[in-house]
Amino acid sequence: MRLVRSRHDTRSAILGYLWCSGGSFRPDLAAGVALTEASISRIISDLKAEGVIEETRRAAPYRGGPSLFITLSNAISVAAIEISNNRLYAAIGTLAGETLYAERYDLPDGIGAAAVTATVTRAVCELGSWAAPRGIVLEQLAVSIPGYDPDLRASPIVPLDVAALADALQRELPETPARLTNSMVARAVAHRLQMGTGVLGGSYFFVFVGHGVGAAIVDELAESGDVETCEIGHVVIDRGGRCCRCGHGGCLEPYVSTVALADILQVQESDLIGRGDRWPDDYDISPAARAEIKARLGLLGLAIGNALNLTRQRNVVIAGWPGALPAEDRAVVMEAIGASRLGGLQGIALTFSTASLGREPVSGLALAAFSFIRRSGARRAQQQQLISN
């Protein structure tokens, strides 16, 4: 069956493929978006003229092969506000993935709404003040907020007043398109970029275990942009259990987050996060601590198995601190999934990804770049022209 796309969709598909692959020769790009070189040549010319992509010469991949290599442009700038690990990160980067500016602001536990709003306002102001004198035009801003729900004025995880944030953005960056979303969307988008252009047999259930614990259903993200989030970290597993930062008792998160892991290891969470995938080798883990970690992984598996009872997803990807453990320890997760999922483990495929800890604001910038791509790479000047016409 012949694939029919609008010009907008074709532009997005081309940019999405380049984003995931890191660049491509024209024949590979055409094959990747399931179109002929002739059918995409005009769009490639337009994107080059608009400064969205660049084409440089490289050694041909084979004798007589192409030598022009296409990448996303380093001249396009996007920005991010990412809240993670009790911190707020403000950053500017290029569409091609280079970070130009990054600042970190502390958001300690227990901080009030007024203080959060003041910090966010300061971060937005300083971000805009850094870009303006350098002549940097921000084509897209992404704001990643833990527990964000567009139907709620403030997140139950971080007391950020969304209306106050919108006012700050309008005042400091009035012409920059902004996307506010749940932090798990940003994590899922960044993971999809990390995967490259490969696909795990279609959609998958993505779980991130860090300072926060969340999940998302990723469905052909590079094409559709659809990400359905799931607050798996706030599934109550023990009604009389540990107090969670969301205000409930007995949520999964206080048992399996990096806060909980640091407590088991008797180390500082910031030090743990800074070690990324090296943490199991860097710490002397006692037999008692290893047994407790495996017990916590069992709780994670039970929660995932129950989540799979509510969705038809069969591919599961876990990113965060569990991915650094040896296979025999991680096997507990799969056993627990089978113990809680109706039908057991039949058809379930489980993959562990890299920790991706301490890499903020990579996820926020990835979401900003992806949001720009999803609007087909239309520059701000083009959008304003369309509005005025």
Rank of each mutant, 00 (worst) to 15 (best):
R2Q: 13
V4S: 12
H8D: 15
R11G: 09
S12W: 01
C20N: 05
G22Q: 11
G23Q: 02
A30P: 00
E37T: 13
E37V: 11
E37G: 10
A38T: 13
L47A: 04
E50G: 07
E54M: 13
R57C: 12
R57S: 14
G65D: 09
P66D: 08
S67Q: 12
F69Y: 08
F69S: 00
F69Q: 03
T71Y: 02
L72K: 06
S73Y: 10
N74T: 09
N74A: 09
I81P: 00
S84C: 10
N85E: 15
N85C: 10
L88D: 06
A91T: 05
I92K: 03
G93L: 07
G93V: 04
Y101N: 03
A102I: 11
L107S: 02
G112F: 07
T117F: 04
T117Y: 06
T117D: 14
A118Y: 01
V120C: 01
T121D: 15
C125E: 15
E126Q: 12
L127F: 11
R134T: 13
G135E: 10
Q140M: 15
V143G: 03
S144L: 05
A154F: 05
S155K: 02
I157S: 13
I157E: 06
D161S: 08
D161K: 07
V162E: 06
V162L: 09
A164C: 12
A168Q: 03
A168C: 09
L169D: 01
Q170P: 01
Q170S: 12
L173T: 12
E175W: 03
S183A: 14
S183N: 08
M184D: 05
A186G: 06
R187M: 13
A188L: 10
Q194V: 10
T197G: 14
G201N: 09
V207W: 02
F208I: 02
V209N: 02
V209H: 00
H211Y: 03
G212L: 02
G212I: 00
V213C: 04
G214R: 00
A216G: 07
S224T: 15
S224W: 11
G225R: 02
E228P: 02
D238C: 10
D238N: 14
R242T: 05
G250F: 07
C251M: 06
P254S: 10
V259P: 04
V259R: 11
I264Y: 05
Q266W: 04
Q268L: 15
Q268W: 11
E269F: 06
R275K: 11
R275Q: 13
W279G: 00
W279A: 01
W279D: 04
D281C: 09
Y283T: 12
I285N: 06
A289N: 08
A291F: 04
A291V: 05
E292N: 14
E292G: 05
I293N: 01
K294F: 05
L310A: 15
Q313H: 05
R314L: 10
V316A: 04
A327L: 14
E335T: 12
L342Q: 14
G343Q: 04
G343N: 03
A349Y: 10
L350M: 11
S353M: 05
T354A: 07
G358C: 02
S363R: 04
S363A: 15
G364N: 00
G364H: 00
L365Y: 03
L365I: 07
R375N: 10
R375G: 06
S376C: 08
R379E: 06
R380W: 00
Q383D: 04
I387N: 13
